[in-house]
Design a protein around this nucleic acid. Structure first.
Length: 932
DNA sequence: CTTTCCCGCCATTTT
DNA sequence: AAAATGGCGGGAAAG
């Protein structure tokens, strides 16, 4: 049937050829009518595709189906009308005044925004003509309106449980527009993570759950990127000026922040990234960033366009500018529909200029509890969902690209990254893809961040720095995979709580995704000097060069998931994990990617890791050491034992360095016995260069230590947690699973944490999350605000469950704070935490682990003499996921049956380092006081 | 006139 | 090769 119909239409319409439209005088009108005008039988239009609109996407010559809508005449499909009606019916739609659009009939009845439309309602064909003229005016067809309709179809805050998938063909047909338009909308939405592409023609609706987080990230990224630029309205020039400088590389101000333009970087380094990625999505994000960093929250189009033109402004051609502006309008329309911005006019000297004002949220409190919390936890999941999986893919060309896809709902296997993922379940394998997901954009941002950090570090340290460029490049090339899975622990309660259904693999926040993902930085050997220095100095902890650490944007918190090594745990977890594990995606990679451990493979490694992670899911690599006792002693003094290597690498996580690779391999290859051995310790693999590590290992097979590095100037916003020693052992152990991860390093933004009042003890109180399963028990965060940097900064990690009252509402950062470090420990906490026993790894009671590092100890580069303007809040957030990131596990463990001791032991292990460093809480406290 | 921005050709990228 | 995406800019409606 359809066919015939179509044909008819086609004929009738006589679609103009592509270009013909020009000919058509008013194509717009015409189209409109056809679409809009219900009544008129006219179909004449060009509906080319007539093909089935929605129904069958197939064939039309042109993919895009044009839709049509006409109601009355005959719908091609019976359902079509229904759909239309439905859409029309949607609540929102009506609300919007604007909506007039397409479906006149319906709308008319309700709204009458436009005068024109009014008339229509009643109209019949006869009258139609006139009405036609009225045309569905352009407005009715506007992207903004269309977007509203689109949005009206989906809930702002969908239940976590349900996943809403969006079929492009379907919505296009329902909304009566060509696909092209849908892409415009979706791309913008995707940039804000309201949706994510799941597969070909399919998007997953996430709603606004993550919006604040996404915005936060954008804001941070924007600050980094645009910094002060956006201060006032007429900064244009300044901006330009600055931009140029930057490009040049020397900007006075910017010195501290070397921003990279994404585009630029890409180009230079990598191959052509050309990808289309470039535009709309990125532009949208940048545009939003501008608002977020703007003091006035008002951005004029021309300024935005200029800024966004990153390219060489020198040659800015007018045409380019114009095009940019056009795009900006497209984006603005969508954002307007989202109620994030509104149009305004600014009057400047020159006159009035079109501009947009941000009317969305401006503050993104970090408090986990608060912000998010409030939210109905009902959605606890969102957070989880958010996790994005990072996948690494290889493009056909062989180049790898980052793709990001976020997986939001657990239900879904992860969504594939854009494009890569196979849409079908069927296709299980694709070797190609790996799985890291990054979005390019994110990457770039990350890169920028990394670069910045790096610079700082370098500067501080004075060591030769690696060029950021190199870093960047490398990053680009390889995607990184994180060995760890990260879960964002959002400040938002929402997230926190979420259980990850999918958790299986490491997830990165999708949202953040863009940003966050790429973030991982692996440190490289590059900093050897620093490392060396650091270690030696105190004698304390040394860092192992290779360890990876993650850098996150300050606001966000992440959870690291490591694999637990314990068998027990693993078992426990495993079940879930399995369930969780997503199908296809993960698997494949493993196979091909495993690189040999030893050899650091740049690109690949990450992949491997990733794979491992995903696949295996091992529980955490950390296992309680069999013999706890040993570890504690860690021969050396507290600090000494730990070695952490941190490398900064922009993108990648890979641990090119010795350890990492190994891990990867192993894991990939097999986990089995190795683990055991590893547990024992793997002497064999001591990463080159780290003798002590090996040594340590020997001594302590498995003690994970975490180092907290103070944020230095540049990094002020980040807190780093490294695991100190683990690397070696962990690696070995981890082999199966998450090799690399075994030791998680986390970089947490202090600010974020600061606000975090509470800490969740692993056992945790659990605050937010309701969900038993879903909840994230795991994450434990402790916050201490230590005001002064200067002094030593202690870090505490408590395994015990503490419920901390929100201790610090306090601003995370307070520059002015007195030097004395103030620790805020909740009484409870203190009490609860008993000293940890070094000896016994397993602390039955409340094991508390503290890690205190002196600044000195801290990695030097980190330490840089910065000024501590910012207080460093010592926040530690530990989040880990046992098995697959499922928080639930932990909770379950604690709660139920697992023997506590065991659990405790685990935890202990996790935090063991602290112990070493400091015996107990009390000690710490004492220490802190002393300082004071 | 200027501001908006729709429309759909067509280059790219995926499948 | 076909389909899916999405850059891009002409040029017309709105203002």
């Amino acid at each position: 049937m359809e066919v015939s119909v179509l044909a008819l239409r086609d004929l009738a319409s006589a679609r103009p050829g592509r270009r013909s439209r020009a000919e058509l005088a008013q194509k717009e009108n015409i189209f409109d009518r056809s679409r809009m005008a219900p009544k008129t039988p006219i179909k004449n239009e060009p509906i080319d595709l007539s093909k089935q609109k929605g129904c069958t996407p197939e064939r039309s010559p042109i993919t895009p189906v044009k839709i049509v809508d006409r109601p009355q005449p005959d719908p091609w499909t019976p359902t079509a009308n229904l759909k239309i009606l439905v859409s029309a019916a949607s609540p929102d739609m009506r609300d919007r005044e604007k909506k007039k659009e397409l479906f006149r009939p319906i709308e008319n009845s309700e709204q009458s925004d436009t005068p024109d439309s009014l008339q229509y309602d009643i109209v019949d064909d006869s009258t139609v003509d006139e009405f036609e003229k009225q045309r569905p005016s352009r407005k009715q067809k506007s992207l903004g309106l269309l977007c509203q309709k689109f949005l009206a179809r989906y809930p702002n805050y969908p239940l976590s449980t349900e996943k809403t998938t969006i079929s492009l063909d379907e919505v296009a047909s329902i909304l009566g527009v060509e696909r092209r338009r849908i892409y415009d909308i979706v791309n913008v939405l995707e940039s804000l993570h309201l949706v994510s592409r799941v597969a070909k023609n399919q998007y997953c609706w996430h709603g606004r759950h993550n919006l604040s987080q996404t915005l936060k990230m954008l804001q941070e990224a924007g600050e980094l990127q645009y910094g002060e630029l956006m201060t006032s309205q007429h900064k244009e020039q300044d901006l330009e000026y600055k931009f140029e400088k930057r490009k040049k590389g020397t900007t006075p101000e910017s010195q501290d922040r070397p921003l990279l333009d994404f585009s630029e970087q890409d180009c230079s380094s990598a191959s052509a990234n050309s990808r289309k990625d470039k535009s709309l999505r990125i532009m949208s994000q940048k545009f939003v960033m501008l608002f977020l960093v703007s003091k006035t929250k008002i951005v004029t189009l021309d300024i935005a366009a200029k800024i966004l033109i990153e390219e060489t402004q020198d040659t800015v051609d007018h045409s380019k500018f114009k095009t940019k502006v056009r795009r900006l309008y497209d984006i603005a329309n969508v954002l307007t529909s989202l109620d994030l911005i509104k149009k305004v006019h600014v009057t400047e000297e020159r006159g009035r200029k079109p501009a947009f004002k941000w009317i969305g949220p401006v503050e993104f409190p970090e408090k986990t509890g608060e912000l998010k919390g409030h939210s109905p936890t009902s959605d606890p999941l969102p957070g989880t969902q958010r996790g994005a999986c990072v996948q690494y893919q290889t493009s056909a060309t062989g180049k790898q690209r980052f793709t990001r896809h976020a997986s939001f709902n657990s239900a879904q296997p992860c969504e594939a990254n854009r494009r890569k993922v196979s849409s079908e379940p069927n296709s299980p394998h694709q070797e190609k893809q790996a799985s890291v997901v990054n979005s390019d954009e994110n990457c770039s941002k990350m890169i920028n961040l990394a670069a910045v950090c790096r610079q700082k570090i370098e500067e501080d340290t004075g060591n030769e720095a690696c060029d950021t460029e190199t870093i960047l490049n490398s990053a680009k090339n390889s995607n990184m995979t994180l060995p760890l899975s990260l879960l964002p622990v959002p400040g938002d309660s929402d997230f926190c709580v979420n259980p990850l259904p999918q958790a299986v693999f490491p997830v990165v926040q999708a949202d953040v995704p863009s940003f966050s993902l790429p973030i991982g930085i692996s440190s490289q050997a590059s900093q050897p000097s620093t490392a060396a220095a650091s270690k030696t100095e105190n004698g304390k902890p040394t860092l192992v060069p290779n360890q990876p650490f993650l850098c996150f944007p300050s606001s966000s918190l992440f959870m690291l998931c490591g694999g637990l090594q314990e068998n027990n745990l693993s078992e426990l977890l495993s079940a879930e994990a399995q369930a969780a594990v997503p199908p296809t995606v993960c698997q494949k990679r493993s196979s091909h990617k495993c690189s040999s451990p030893s050899a650091p493979v740049d690109d690949e490694e990450p992949v491997a890791k990733k794979q491992t992670l995903e696949q295996s899911f091992l529980p955490l690599s950390l296992v309680a050491p069999k013999k706890p006792s040993e570890s504690p002693k860690a021969e050396s003094s507290p600090g000494s034992g730990c070695s952490a290597a941190v490398h900064l690498e922009m993108d990648r996580f890979d641990l090119a360095s010795p350890a990492a690779p190994e891990v990867a391999n192993k894991e990939s290859s097999q986990d089995q016995e190795q683990e055991k051995q590893s547990q024992n310790k793997d002497p064999d693999e001591p990463p080159p260069g780290n003798e002590h590590i090996s040594k340590e290992n020997a001594n302590q097979p498995f003690q994970p230590q975490y180092l907290y590095v103070q944020p230095t100037a540049g990094l002020s916003s980040f807190n780093f947690l490294f695991s100190a020693n683990q690397a070696p052992s962990a690696i070995s152990l981890a082999a199966n699973q998450m090799p690399s991860l075994s030791v998680p390093c986390v970089m947490v933004p202090s600010a974020a944490l600061a606000s975090f009042p509470l800490v969740c003890s692993p056992s945790f109180t659990s605050p937010l999350s309701p969900a038993p399963e879903g909840s994230f028990p795991a994450a434990a965060s402790t916050n201490f605000s230590v005001s002064s940097l200067a002094s030593t900064t202690p870090v505490f990690i408590s395994t015990t469950a503490v419920v901390t009252p929100k201790v610090s509402p306090a601003p995370a950062v307070e520059p002015q704070q007195p030097p004395h470090p103030a620790l805020h420990l909740s009484p409870v906490l203190t009490r609860s935490c008993s000293a940890v026993k070094l000896d016994s790894p397993v602390c039955m009671g409340h094991p508390v682990t503290l890690l205190k590092l002196q600044q000195q100890t801290a990695i030097k580069f980190v330490q840089s003499p910065v000024q501590k303007t910012e207080s460093v809040a010592i926040d530690i957030t530990l989040a880990w996921t046992f098995s697959k990131c499922k928080a639930s596990m932990i909770s379950s463990l604690f709660g139920t049956g697992i023997d506590f001791p065991r659990v405790a032991a685990l935890l202990d292990v996790l935090f063991s380092c602290t112990v070493q460093s400091y015996g107990t809480f009390s000690d710490m406290a004492a220490g802190s006081r002393e300082k004071d």
